[in-house]
Design a binder for these strands. Sequence first.
RNA 1: GCGAGUGUAGCUCAGUGGUUAGAGCACCGGUUUGUGGUACCGGGGGUCGUGGGUUCAAGUCCCAUCACUCGCCCCA
Length: 419
Amino acid sequence: MARGLQPVRGTHDLFGDDKRRFDHIVAAARSVAAGYGYAPMATPAFEFTEVFRRTLGETSDIVTKEMYTFASGSGEEVTLRPEGTAPVARALVSGGRLQVLPARLFYDGPMFRRERPQKGRMRQFHQVGIELIGEPSPVGDVEVIAAGARLLERLGLTDSVTLHLHTLGNGASRDRYRTALVAYLDQHRGSLSADSQRRLDRNPLRVLDSKAPEDREVADKAPRLLDHLDSDSAGFFAEVRCQLDALKIGYEIDPLLVRGLDYYMHTTFEFVTDRLGAQGAVLAGGRYDGLTERMGGPSLAGTGWAAGIERLSMLTGDNLPAAPRPVLVARVAEDATTQALRCAEALRDAGVPAELALQGSLKRQLRHADRIGARAAVLLGRRELEAGVVSVRDLDSGEQSEIAIAQLPGHVLEMIDGG
RNA sequence: GCGAGUGUAGCUCAGUGGUUAGAGCACCGGUUUGUGGUACCGGGGGUCGUGGGUUCAAGUCCCAUCACUCGCCCCA
């Protein structure tokens, strides 16, 4: 059984293929983002608590119960970031980087939420995300959605996910709708679940996507946000749909898609899957005009998304490029150290990953070569030293030959090319 | 924060209240003192999550507790 110190609940160690898959997803996201002109950037893993309290909404669950908040040494209250968008907006404002707009930014890194862990949900999890700041047009939303779709395609997940699309409209539309919705729900308060009765008071839109069967009946007949949009909001949404159609990006209008963070408006979207248990969203975002103003800067448009790397990772499965196979350089004779180091460096100069084996019998070293998946082994023993050569063993075919040290990189490269 | 399920070797799991708790895989060694993978032979490894209780006797039954998993809430 496991002994000693344990990892903190909801955190995770990553080894081997799991870590390679993780890195592959980040690399794919960075590459896709670069193709759209999004420049990599990074923000700190923690911020003054105010950054999140001001932007996510006082009543959102993230703010009320999920933040890792603590006092820094100097008495300031700081919080491990629960999401990436607010810090990016803060960084643009505090760094004065608002001269060249729109700003296109890509980030990746850990996020922290103090939730009960379950499938696809950790306390420390990781996201990649893009933000487009200073582009008020619906074309901005189309651009970020297209980038998201392209990333999922690159990861081979197009058939695993569905794009759900909705709009919250502008502030005026949302307020008008909220009034109508609360009036309707109030009439049915008695038939709602306890959770939803609480939602009705705190965040009525949330009743719409409740999973409780008793709520579904009420929610499915509730007034629709789409019927309460003013002409600006309706036109904005129509343009988003029109351009997505033009790009042949398929989507479903999901009138129940309500996002949890206060800063969203107009377009919201989620790429969802049914393969991750209770967690459906793998890449999600929307428009957040005005977020920079809440950080004390000018009011700017904003739109973007974040994707959960762990969730993507669970979906990609074995769909992973082959691991690079190293060459093992075995120092069989004790006094072959210098030759072994030189051979390994020569291989690396040629772009071939090389690993040194110093300990134990040749048998043991070859077994190690097998375990690390080495393509070949370079043997440096008494015989080789005296003859001024190295033995190169092809570990797939078992063929072995002695060659001059100067020929080593070329010989190995040829072997790799041959399979 | 709430609910359910599961905790036995590094991993996956057997184990009817009754000897010294087992298997497969993995690991180590040998067959082979300069040759991996396959095969054969051998070996090491367990406070049965933890603490209490019931019993002549507990891995097994009861209670508590901790951890993990899944779900609710919420969300990437």
